[in-house]
Computed example of a mutant assay.
Amino acid sequence: MVIASKEQLLAADAERDRAICGHALATMSPKRTRMADRGAHDPTPTPYFILEELLQPLGLTPDDHLLDVGCGTGRVLAYAAGRLPCRVTGVELDPQLASVAAAWAARFPRLDVIQGSVLEIPLAAFSHYYLFNPFDTSVLVAFLDKIEREAVRPVTLIHMSDNGETYAYLARPTWRLVRDGSIQTYPSSSGRAFDVYAYPQHWSMWRYEPSA
């Protein structure tokens, strides 16, 4: 199928959701977060083509463990179910969204879902992190502080839609920018690209290595 519009892209993602999870994940999420008072942002499933672009180059192995921070109903988990060899855990503050993700992900041994705050769970087990603009900058800073306290091995973090938050990493000399870029359009196989976002969404990949 040639995808030639944003509507077709969203429909294809929904069909892929249904094949893996049993239902379209975007329809299971509210448009507005119920957790704004705790710094959470609106739940936003990452399009599959973006996950392909950002996660495949990591070269993840069965020894790695990826944490999807603010997993919502589980789009990253759905991608991982068929495309990643590592363990993947989603952590989600909203109990209703976490319940949706946990229900369908239970069929996959390498997937897990934790309901709660990422600031309240142990982080030492994780080698990689994925964030799609999950929370306010103040929460991000606390999260980076927690990684620095608990990491026992080098970790890689990908932050999609980090617009305006790159400085939170740049202010930390122990974090190294590996690469970055921006995504706005979908490179349709028809040769005619179309906008997925109204404005370019910056993303960045960071590496943190704990001191010996």
Rank of each mutant, 00 (worst) to 15 (best):
P43G: 13
D112V: 04
A193S: 14
V91T: 06
S190A: 15
Y186G: 13
Y167G: 09
A198S: 14
M1S: 14
R87L: 09
D136W: 03
D13T: 05
P187L: 11
R18I: 13
W104V: 02
A40K: 03
R207N: 09
E148S: 12
A105N: 08
R16S: 11
A151Y: 01
E92Q: 12
G191A: 13
A171P: 00
D180R: 08
K31I: 09
H128G: 01
D112A: 15
H202F: 09
E165R: 10
G90A: 15
R172P: 00
P173N: 12
D68G: 01
E92A: 12
R149D: 15
S189R: 15
A105Q: 06
S127E: 03
A40T: 02
A168W: 00
A124C: 05
Y79A: 11
H128I: 00
R34A: 14
D68F: 00
P57I: 07
T61F: 06
L97W: 00
A102V: 05
P95H: 12
I147S: 09
P30V: 05
G181S: 09
L131R: 02
H159Y: 03
I121E: 02
R153F: 10
F132W: 04
Y79T: 04
H128W: 00
M28R: 12
E209L: 06
D145I: 09
A105K: 04
P85F: 10
V118W: 01
Y130P: 00
P45K: 12
C71E: 04
A151L: 09
L58R: 03
T27S: 14
R176K: 14
V178C: 10
P95R: 13
L60Y: 02
V139Q: 05
A78R: 01
D13M: 06
W206Y: 03
P134Q: 07
A19S: 14
D37I: 03
M160T: 04
S99F: 02
A14H: 04
S211N: 09
F135C: 10
A101L: 13
R18Q: 15
P43H: 11
D145R: 12
W203R: 02
I50T: 06
A4S: 15
C21W: 01
P210I: 05
D63S: 14
G116A: 08
T73V: 15
D195G: 07
Y130K: 02
A36P: 00
L97H: 02
R38F: 08
A36I: 04
A81L: 13
L58W: 02
E150I: 03
R176M: 08
V141K: 12
L84N: 02
W203N: 01
D145M: 08
L54Y: 01
G181P: 01
D180P: 00
A12H: 10
M1Q: 13
P154Y: 08
F49R: 11
A78T: 02
S138I: 04
G59C: 11
G116D: 07
A11R: 07
E120V: 05
P187V: 10
F143N: 01
P210C: 09
V2P: 01
T33Q: 11
T44L: 13
E53T: 15
H23W: 05
E15Q: 14
W203K: 02
A80P: 00
A193L: 07
G22P: 01
R110P: 00
T33H: 06
N133A: 07
L25C: 07
A171S: 11
T73C: 15
T156S: 07
L77N: 04
F194E: 12
R207S: 12
A168L: 04
